[in-house]
Design a protein around this nucleic acid. Structure first.
Lengths: 169, 169
DNA sequence: TAAAACCTGTGACCAACTCACAGGTCAAAC
DNA sequence: GTTTGACCTGTGAGTTGGTCACAGGTTTTA
C-alpha cells in the first residue's frame, strides 16, 4: 500500500494531488495509515511533541510531511524495542540537534533490558505462586464464610514472601 | 507486634483503652500498621468500598474493627495472588452475602493464571528482540542524523513481527 | 501552650494510549 | 442545493493501583 492523496478513489488523483504528493503532505488519517497506527495515536504523539506538523491556513488541518512519517515509524520501532515515549522524544530531540542519539540509545536500551528481565523474573515468581496455590486448592473444600474466614483458599495460602514473625489474630 | 491502642506509650494504656481494645477499634494508621500497608492504601481501599469503617461522632475519625483487618489482610493476599481490586471487592461482597466465594475464586484464578502466562510469553519475546538487537548493534557504528535517518540502530532493526509487504520511502 | 503527629476529604499524578463529544470541513450523490 | 457520510479540530475522561500533596481540623507530646 503506497501513500494516497486524501481518500479520493484513483480516478480523482489529479494534478493537484500529484503536486501535493511530491511534498508528501498528509492529513492525520493518511500518515496514520502509512505508519500502521490509529489516527488517535498520531494525534497523541503530536500532542506529546514527537511530531511537528504544519497547518493548512485554509482549514486549520494539520499537515504531516515525509519527515514526520519517518519520526512516527521510528517512534513505533523504538516503542516495540521497549523505549518509553519520553525516551523516544529525547532521542528525536537529540537527533534534531544534529547529535547522534545512538550512544544514548545503547545506554537506555541496556537499562531497559535489565528492567524487562527483572519483570520477567517477578512474573515467573507470581506464576509459580499461582500454580502452587492451584494445586494446593485441588483437595480443599469450598467453605462458607463464617465471620472468621472469608475464603480459606486465599486466607490459608502460605505466602512464601511474608516473613512476619508475630502476627496474632 | 500486637495491636496497640492509639499511639500512647504503655503507661497510658488505661481502662478506656483496654475496653476499646476488646472491640479492637483502630484508626487508619493502626490498621495500616497491623496489616503492613500504608495509611494511604487503607484510605484508598476504604474509598473503593473494600473496608467499611464506622465513625467516631466526636471527631469524625474512621474506626476499623477486627473484621476490617481481616478483610484488609485478605485483600492483600488476594492481590499478591494476582486478583484485581474489583475482583477482590466482588469476592468480599459475595462473602458478605454468606455465599462461598471459593468457586468464583477458583474460576477467576485460572483465567488470571492464563493472563500471567501470556504476559510472560510476551515479555520473553520482547527480551529476545532486545538481546538480538543488542548483539546486532555490537558492530554497528554510531551515525549522525542526516535528515534521512535518525538512529540506524533502531531504524535498521529488523522487526520480526512486521509483515508489511510494500513499504517504500 | 506550642509543636509535632495524626486525622479528614479531595484531587492530581504515573503510562500509553483509547474513546467520547461537540462542532467545523469537505467531497460525492441525489 | 442539500444532504449524507467521512473526515477534521481540541479537549477531557477513562484505564490500574495506588502514591503524593494540600488545606484545614484534632490529638498527643514536650
Amino acid at each position: 500500500m503506497s501513500y494516497e492523496c486524501g481518500n479520493s478513489p484513483a480516478r480523482f488523483v489529479s494534478l493537484t494531488c500529484i503536486a501535493t504528493a511530491w511534498a508528501t503532505l498528509m492529513k492525520v488519517k493518511d500518515i496514520a495509515t502509512a505508519a500502521g497506527v490509529s489516527p488517535d495515536t498520531v494525534r497523541f504523539y503530536t500532542r506529546e511533541g514527537l511530531l511537528h506538523p504544519g497547518r493548512n491556513p485554509d482549514n486549520n488541518y494539520q499537515e504531516y510531511n515525509a519527515d514526520d512519517l519517518r519520526r512516527l515509524r521510528f517512534a513505533r520501532k523504538a516503542r516495540q524495542l521497549g523505549f518509553s515515549l519520553p525516551e523516544v522524544r529525547r532521542i528525536l530531540e537529540q537527533a534534531d540537534d544534529h547529535h547522534s542519539p545512538c550512544p544514548m540509545v545503547r545506554d537506555v536500551f541496556q537499562r531497559r533490558l535489565a528492567d524487562v528481565e527483572r519483570e520477567i523474573a517477578e512474573l515467573q515468581q507470581l506464576r509459580e505462586r499461582m500454580v502452587a496455590a492451584l494445586s494446593a486448592w485441588e483437595d480443599m473444600p469450598d467453605g462458607t464464610p463464617d465471620g472468621h474466614t472469608i475464603c480459606r483458599l486465599i486466607e490459608h495460602w502460605d505466602d512464601p514472601s511474608a516473613s512476619s514473625c508475630c502476627g496474632e489474630s
